[in-house]
Design a binder for these strands. Structure first.
Length: 117
RNA sequence: AGAGUCGCCCGGAUCACCGCGUUACGAAAGUACCGAGGAAAGUCCGGACUCCAAAGAGCAAAGUGGUGGGUAACGCCCACCCGGAGCAAUCCGCGGGAUUAGUGCAACAGAAAGCAAACCGCCUUUUAGAAAUAAAAGGUAAGGGUGAAACGGCGGUGUAAGAGACCACCAGUAAUUGCAGCAAUGCAGUUAGCUAUGUAAACCCCACUUGGAGCAAGACCAUGCAGUUGGCGCUUGAGAGCUGCUCGCUCGAGUCAACGGGUAGGUUGCUUGAAUCUGUAAGUAAUUACAGAUCUAGAUGGAUGGUGAUCCACGACAGGAUCCGGCUUAUAGGGCGACUCUUCUU
């Protein structure tokens, strides 16, 4: 789970991450990462599609994803905004391995882009 | 032992480590407590609470519909009545009014579905014919066939054949009397005319109930902006009081429309309540009264997850969002109690 300071809470931040951030898609998840110059800790948020299932199914998926993000939280750059989107089949997916590849790929892509600038 | 009916309860358990939400303590690190459901769901009823100045009247509209009781209230619950199903326990009912307010409808089939009717059949008379029979006129609702429903039922008298035309018994309707019951209603009797129905989830009539909007209610604090044009008005009253109309009442100097511009962040409401548990008393019961004990989520991008171990039946439906009382729907599996019927043994 994530501490309160590590959560994305405002709709403006969500819009910035999903529209302007770096994107990486796997079969069941989409990861967005947006880098800021702010000196505050990295923050993360979730978007779960209603196609995942009932309220219980969506809640369970959100808990699993939050848990996985926590394992990789230390790798995130300072001031970055991370958004994970859960797609319709993601309830049956193996969250732990898939989320870790998504996060590592999105971090790698952001570093490549920073280096190319 | 088998078959069945009804009611109630549980809804994986225990431990360790890491992690999350509120609250309390603490300077901090941190520590401690508590942390989803029987349906949290559908949002179908009823309330509490908040706002609409106050919540007035009539019509309209909507809802409810056996009787009595329970309740803050209900379309809910309990008991009883009536009708239906079942051998029974028990279950089901959208259960006011269809002579005595009125209008309408009854598909298909059938001759005929509210007043009038004869398809087949039965009977009589007349005519034709040697006869079988045919035709015409009339009588007939007992029989056949149709239908969810067919003009009370069965038997007899009677008759040309028939018919409540008449008789006995039975059923039903209306009026009425007595008894039982708070009542719905039941039981017993008398009289009458001799008697067709369904539909009110058709209009309608009767009785009772209902002002509107909802916690994104409402209150407070921040942040931010820019006006322009047109209409109607300033006590001879524009407009407002968020229901369709009318009346009444109140406020009232600005207001309405179009175009354009701005903000959409936080605090509060927010959980002690028609509360839960236990006991006693009243009541057939729903429920109520009293006493004692307990404090039991309060998030706001929204808290319950991960890993490991043990046990078993290997875990269904499913996640709070202002709060209660119900209803409805979903639900793997398991447990308890009461009752009915059948069979066997003593």
């Amino acid at each position: 789970m994530l501490a309160k300071s590590a959560r994305l809470t405002e709709s403006g931040d969500f819009a910035r991450a999903t529209k302007s951030g770096i994107r990486y898609s796997s079969t069941n998840f989409v990861g967005y990462l947006y880098l800021t110059e702010l000196a505050q800790p990295a923050r993360a948020g979730l978007i779960i599609s209603k196609a995942v299932g009932s309220s219980v199914a969506r809640h369970r998926l959100a808990r699993k994803i939050r848990h996985c993000i926590r394992d990789h939280y230390a790798q995130l750059p300072t001031g970055s905004l991370l958004v994970i989107r859960g797609l319709n089949k993601s309830a049956e997916a193996d969250c732990a391995s898939e989320i870790s590849t998504v996060i590592s790929n999105v971090i790698r892509k952001s570093k490549e882009r920073a280096a190319s600038k």
